[in-house]
């Protein structure tokens, strides 16, 4: 059982949760994720660890409402307990001193990006972060990003905050202006696809963090498998980070939609039960 110590909404559908998980807080590194299960009847879903405090024994997760489980999680309150939290899972980010690192985060992608920004900065790199959202309220973790980045560029699709334009426009701006040695792009699959097409034009080595469907998260089921450079890899144990140029993006987008119908139906059922309680 893992207690929710803090919950703070960034916007109507996105919140930050601070959760008690002392062992994970101690052993986790940038790039790691956890699998959570809310209750006896819950499903197992992966969430990237955005930050941790080993002394307090807590981890930070950023959650966006996308289906039943995330909706239920966002409806939980401080003091409530999550039945299962297991991790840290996946391979940690490979951090080294390369020079200038461009870190691009789309929407809640800023959350998994944050520990990577921090780690690259601590390894002595110049770190430029581009964080983006459709509108102002969907741009998250700006202050934290500023703390660990040499520069932060904020982009919004509608121009309601920062510069108007897509995340790729912000990335181009940096690449045009100065030498970038490495890029990390994290966000929705479609954003990662176009983000890495941008860096590919300039031959900048680029990593992405894939958020595929998972069940156990320990290599046991293969639900998360994806073709990387023509070979099938398991995101949970071989990733979650991969060379962006090797990822089969069309397959990634296709596999993300495997349960679209079931997910929509389940969400509609959930909304009905919530309404009947009200």
């Amino acid at each position: 059982m893992n207690k929710i110590l803090e919950k703070e909404f960034f916007s109507a559908n996105v919140a930050k949760l601070i959760i008690e998980a002392p062992e994970i807080a101690k052993s986790r590194k940038a790039g790691h994720f956890v699998i959570i299960r809310l209750d006896e009847k819950g499903e197992r879903i992966p969430l990237t660890i955005a930050d941790s405090d080993p002394e307090k024994g807590t981890i930070m997760l950023v959650v966006q409402r996308v289906g039943v489980t995330t909706a239920k999680l966002l409806a939980m309150n401080e003091g409530d307990k999550i039945l299962d939290v297991v991790g840290p899972l996946g391979k940690a980010t490979h951090i080294e001193k390369v020079g200038t690192v461009l870190c691009a985060g789309g929407g809640v992608g800023a959350a998994p990006l944050l520990p990577i920004v921090k780690a690259f900065k601590e390894a002595g790199n110049r770190v430029i972060s581009v964080i983006a959202g459709r509108t102002k309220e969907l741009v998250i973790l700006e202050d934290e990003m500023r703390e660990y980045s040499d520069e932060v560029i904020v982009m919004t699709d509608d121009g309601s905050y920062g510069k108007k334009g897509l995340v790729t426009a912000g990335m181009e701006e940096v690449i045009q202006r100065e030498k970038v040695n490495k890029a990390v792009v994290i966000g929705p699959a479609i954003m990662m696809k176009f983000g890495s097409l941008t860096t590919k034009k300039y031959n900048i080595p680029t990593d992405v963090s894939l958020n595929t469907i998972m069940v156990d998260g320990t290599g046991m089921c293969g639900a998360c498998r994806i073709s990387i450079g023509g070979k099938t890899k398991f995101v949970c144990v071989d990733g979650p980070e991969f060379d962006a140029f090797q990822v089969d993006w069309d397959q990634m987008l296709m596999r993300m939609g495997a349960y679209k119908k079931e997910e929509r139906e389940a969400y509609e059922r959930y909304l009905k039960t919530v309404e009947s309680v009200k």
């Binding site: 009847k41 499903e43 039943v68 069940v215 046991m220 089921c221 293969g222 639900a223 939609g257 495997a258």
Partner: peptide, 27 residues
């Protein structure tokens, strides 16, 4: 890697461990 192709581990885990065939369960 098309959708609808599972490992037996995934299929059986969803049904046996996660009880996916019951509507009461979220998986």
């Amino acid at each position: 890697n098309y959708n609808g192709i599972f490992s037996s581990n995934e299929y059986l885990t969803r049904v046996n461990l996660m009880k996916a065939s019951s509507e009461e369960y979220d998986t």
